[in-house]
Design a protein around this nucleic acid. Structure first.
Lengths: 104, 104
DNA sequence: GCATCACATAAGCGTCTGCTTATTTGTTGC
DNA sequence: GCAACAAATAAGCAGACGCTTATGTGATGC
């Protein structure tokens, strides 16, 4: 199950922080480490997990490797969540507003 | 972090299966076990994890305990996912259709 | 070539998970 | 009370996780 990899990857707070950082724009592994109190191998391992889950893509550029959010992975979460739409409470209005915003 | 508990809970395939089953309607622990090749204590432990994550609620009824999906937990996932709306690809249209459906 | 840098991989280790079996708690009906 | 049932908890254990240090791989620039 792909969802296994996705949720497992997101279960770790450090990996969610990395993912969130990447959501702000593409970045290489060294830049990601800035202000994160994490060793180089640990970062590399986390990125491998995120990549394996399809949440992040990599693109080698010289001796750097740039990472960015993979929309495919995000879409899979959205798809999974959509199955439980019946349980989204009133707060759903905020999400609707967001979608409306996207239309403009 | 609450999100820790949520994603950790969903990282296990058995727990996702339980959650999915509950999404079909409230059920007690014994009913949930039907056709699931899982021991009674294992089910109890999984339900405790799901409950701790706010994904599931319990309501004792006699000597049974009924469980059902907790909308609060689902809403938290939706909120988390909303942060990455910029990365939802075209497939977002399906979700939009669902929301439109909800308006009727 | 070779020193340097960016990153990945290997190996090892303490901790956490998810399962099991055994037992306990709480409820029902006689 | 007490037998039967639903569910939770306890204890133990194999396997997975996330980290570390050490080493390997690939690219840059002199």
């Amino acid at each position: 199950m792909i969802e296994d990899d996705i949720f497992r990857a997101l279960a770790d707070p450090t990996r969610r922080a990395i993912f969130e950082k990447l959501a702000g724009g593409r970045m290489n592994a060294s830049a990601l480490r800035q202000g994160m109190a994490i060793s180089q191998p640990a970062m590399s391992q986390h990125l491998a997990v995120l990549r394996g889950a399809g949440l992040v893509r990599e693109a080698r550029q010289g001796r750097f490797v740039n990472y960015d959010v993979d929309p495919e992975g995000v879409a899979l979460i959205a798809q999974w969540l959509a199955k439980y739409r019946a349980y989204w409470p009133a707060r759903i209005d905020a999400l609707k507003a967001v979608l409306k915003e996207m239309d403009q």
